[in-house]
């Protein structure tokens, strides 16, 4: 078999993914054969109305659910239905309450395939770097919501898997913290340039963070349109007030509003 060079440059290709739940008359199609791709080092966001099957799509990419039809390719390999090919930042931080902050990160890293010593060293170094060094030995319940999500993001960033899935990582935060987290995330991401697929409800968040925005329709989800985000990096806070930014935001909003 021949795999093209175009495939090798893709961190993720999810092709014609269809997902039906149930059988016969009760069957409900959630994903209507949609294709999504993420290039190496690209930051891609998916926005769509609630209930458009974004979480289901993530479960299929992550291998938790098999698609009814379609294929998932990660890093040029077919991984449909296989787990362990991605690193993941869930909606709620999903830190084990009985492990320290450092312990949580180290555990995930060793599960992802790093050896224990490297995991320990990287964890210590990076916790200090993101200003949470003094919390390394604390239990997660002492952290604030924003700090928890930083730890959760760091845990995914340090994993060796090249593709990161972010499932509404800031959805549970208050508006101000959310804003700070978005700025923090761009600054970290612009240094590391990992391949990221982000699911979000917020159009601003998608535009501010991404290279490309994919707009989904309501159930069964299909790709309505894709936008390349033209704003230069590093992205600045001031972007929010630029007319071009707001024009794009308006267009996506109109698109989502369609029945």
């Amino acid at each position: 078999m021949h795999t093209g060079t175009a495939d090798d440059r893709m961190a993720l290709k999810a092709e014609r993914i269809r997902k039906r739940f149930g059988n016969g008359d009760a069957a409900k199609e959630v994903l209507g054969g949609l294709s999504v791709s993420v290039g190496k080092g690209e930051f891609v966001s998916i926005v769509g109305p609630s209930g458009s099957g974004k979480t289901t799509l993530f479960k299929i990419i992550g291998g938790l659910e098999p698609p009814t039809e379609g294929e998932v390719w990660i890093g040029g390999k077919k991984t449909t239905g296989e787990r362990g090919h991605i690193s993941y930042v869930p909606q709620q931080s999903a830190l084990l309450p009985w492990r320290t902050v450092a312990g949580n990160i180290e555990l995930s890293l060793t599960i992802s395939g790093l050896d224990r010593r490297t995991a320990k060293r990287e964890t210590k170094e990076w916790l200090a770097r993101i200003g949470l060094g003094e919390y390394a030995d604390a239990y997660p319940h002492v952290l604030s919501g924003g700090m928890t999500q930083r730890v959760s993001f760091l845990r995914a960033l340090l994993a060796p898997q090249p593709l990161m899935l972010l499932d509404e990582p800031f959805g549970a935060l208050d508006a101000l913290t959310r804003l700070q987290m978005q700025q923090w995330l761009t600054s970290i991401w612009e240094e590391s340039r990992r391949s990221v697929l982000l699911v979000t409800h917020s159009i601003e968040e998608a535009l501010y963070l991404s290279d490309r925005v994919i707009v989904l329709s309501a159930s069964p989800a299909a790709v309505l349109e894709e936008f390349a985000v033209p704003f230069p990096r590093p992205r600045r806070e001031a972007l929010w007030t630029e007319p071009a930014f707001n024009a794009m935001k308006q267009r996506i909003y109109e698109l989502l509003r369609q029945p």
Binding site: G62, Y88, P90, A94
Partner: peptide, 26 residues
């Protein structure tokens, strides 16, 4: 255990035994 935690650990490729030792048993 919290379904969020379970999903997270399965997503990153945690096996049945590790899931038992690291999540379910504690």
């Amino acid at each position: 255990p919290d379904p969020q935690l379970r999903d997270y650990f399965r997503m990153i490729g945690t096996g049945k035994w590790q899931l038992f030792w690291r999540l379910e048993l504690p």
